[in-house]
């Protein structure tokens, strides 16, 4: 397929999106990530029954926390696609990058730089 997608996305592989805890998401932002998104299997097709459904709930919870602390919940998103949808994967990468560009950089990253300076 040789599809192109933005190079600023770092892929972290997990056995199942159900492995991703709220803490992983918050830690990414604390370390300076501008946005994160989870790409899980299609809903109803989780190999571990409901890992992707748990992941969606956790993303929603993380969004609430991010909104409360002023980082912006829309920086965290959940997507579902099948492993045969490479084109969609690339599309989502573009969509997410554009979304984050529009929102701007992670304020935590900027605050850390300011304090260090």
């Amino acid at each position: 397929m040789r599809l192109q997608y933005p190079a600023n996305i770092k892929i972290i592989r997990v056995p199942c999106t159900g492995k991703v805890d709220i803490m992983y998401i918050l830690r990414a932002f604390e370390k300076g990530a501008d946005g994160i998104y989870l790409v899980g299997c299609m809903e109803g097709e989780c190999h571990f029954k409901n890992g992707n459904l748990r992941a969606r709930k956790r993303v929603e919870e993380a969004q609430k926390i991010l909104n409360t602390i002023g980082i912006g919940g829309e920086r965290a998103q959940m997507y579902n696609l099948s492993s045969a949808e490479g084109t969609l994967f690339a599309q989502i990468a573009v969509e997410m990058t554009e979304r984050i560009r529009k929102i701007g950089p992670n304020p935590i990253k900027l605050a850390k730089k300011k304090i260090a300076a």
Binding site: M23, T68, I69, I108, A111, K112, I115
Partner: peptide, 20 residues
Amino acid sequence: KEEEILASALRMYFLNKGRE
């Protein structure tokens, strides 16, 4: 787990307010 989440959220909240 909840303690880690709260601590992380609070650290980010204060950093966002310019306080370490």
